[in-house]
């Protein structure tokens, strides 16, 4: 009996000691749906927040963009916080935008900041754009918030093209830490809507290449992160159901493709396209066209 009482007391004390860390009421914060970093000389952070209707019942939630500046990402976020009355809640943040003018050490600082703050989800999607603040301000949201639009757009593009962008924060951070190249889907505003227009490839925190959507698909075959897709060959689309790239001991790349349509010309055209792309981005991609062999496997 004594032992039970003591155990109960310990558990209750544990509950009390844990206090209220992490406790916050549902209406006690602004929900951030997208965050963007820009900056030439200093850092500028822009967040899109969604607020509840307020005093009116059943009013539509609305989104707005707030910005802050500072010498570091943390300072910029701090200055942003000082402008608002409630805390920022990052649990539903779906997009992290990096402005094109943010490169080198500044990009490194942003990546480190993203790792340090606990509120930001490690699986958040990262994107590149010309200017994050402008992108958020100039576009109109289709759904509740632009952050959700960007996430929906990404999902749609992935399913249509078959590209697996590998643009999660933890994926990019791991590649950056290993000194490898990493890429972001590139966003731009078209007719007041945010669209994905290609991919930006980075290495050592500098942009090395910018692919169009088609090049991004080809690149994904070589990077081995592809679940199939369509490649336009000028006259027809080649419907690729599966691809696999391997490197043998001799340093040769072998790309195996499963093509849904039978096309005799395909391998020639595909290789030419790859060579053209590789020629354009030879140094960054670290591939050599004569070390690529294509094996065609006709699908059903």
């Amino acid at each position: 009996m004594k032992i039970k009482l003591i155990s109960l007391l310990c558990v209750v004390s544990l509950l009390m000691l844990c206090g209220c860390s992490g406790y916050r009421e549902a209406d006690n914060g602004y929900i951030v749906t997208a965050i963007g970093f820009d900056g030439n000389e200093d850092f500028k952070v822009s967040v899109e927040v969604v607020t509840a209707g307020g005093s009116e019942l059943r009013s539509e939630p609305k989104s707005e963009v707030i910005s802050g500046k500072g010498n570091s990402p943390m300072e910029a976020v701090f200055s942003l916080n000082s402008k608002i009355s409630k805390n920022l809640v990052f649990d539903h943040c779906t997009a992290l935008l990096i402005g094109k003018n943010l490169s080198g050490k500044k990009l490194e600082e942003v990546l480190k900041y993203g790792k340090e703050i606990k509120e930001l989800n490690f699986a958040i999607d990262m994107f590149m754009c010309e200017n994050a603040e402008d992108l958020l301000n100039e576009s109109e949201s289709v759904s509740v918030a632009r952050g959700f639009d960007i996430a929906a757009n990404l999902k749609e593009t992935k399913s249509e093209t078959g590209i697996d962008y590998q643009n999660k924060f933890y994926e990019i951070y791991m590649e950056y830490n290993a000194g490898k190249s990493y890429s972001f889907p590139y966003l731009k505003v078209k007719n007041e809507r945010i669209i994905i227009d290609g991919e930006s490839v980075f290495k050592e925190n500098k942009e090395k290449a910018h692919f169009t959507n088609e090049e991004a698909l080809l690149y994904s075959f070589i990077k081995n992160n592809n679940n199939g897709g369509k490649i336009f060959l000028g006259e027809e689309f080649a419907d690729i159901s599966h691809s696999h790239c391997s490197l043998n001991n001799g340093g040769e790349y072998t790309v195996n493709l499963s093509i849904k349509q039978k096309s005799k010309k395909f391998s020639k055209i595909f290789k030419k396209r790859v060579e053209k792309m590789l020629g354009k981005h030879k140094e960054e991609l670290n591939f050599s066209s004569d070390k690529i062999k294509l094996k065609e496997r006709d699908g059903i």
């Binding site: 549902a26 209406d27 939630p61 539903h92």
Partner: peptide, 26 residues
């Protein structure tokens, strides 16, 4: 709604937040 709001769908979270705004008690 107080500790694990990341587990809730955003739309639901917004609704709860909207309906709870102005309530003085925890």
């Amino acid at each position: 709604t107080t500790f694990h709001i990341q587990l809730l769908p955003t739309a639901f979270m917004l609704t709860v937040s909207e309906l709870r705004s102005g309530v003085p008690f925890p």
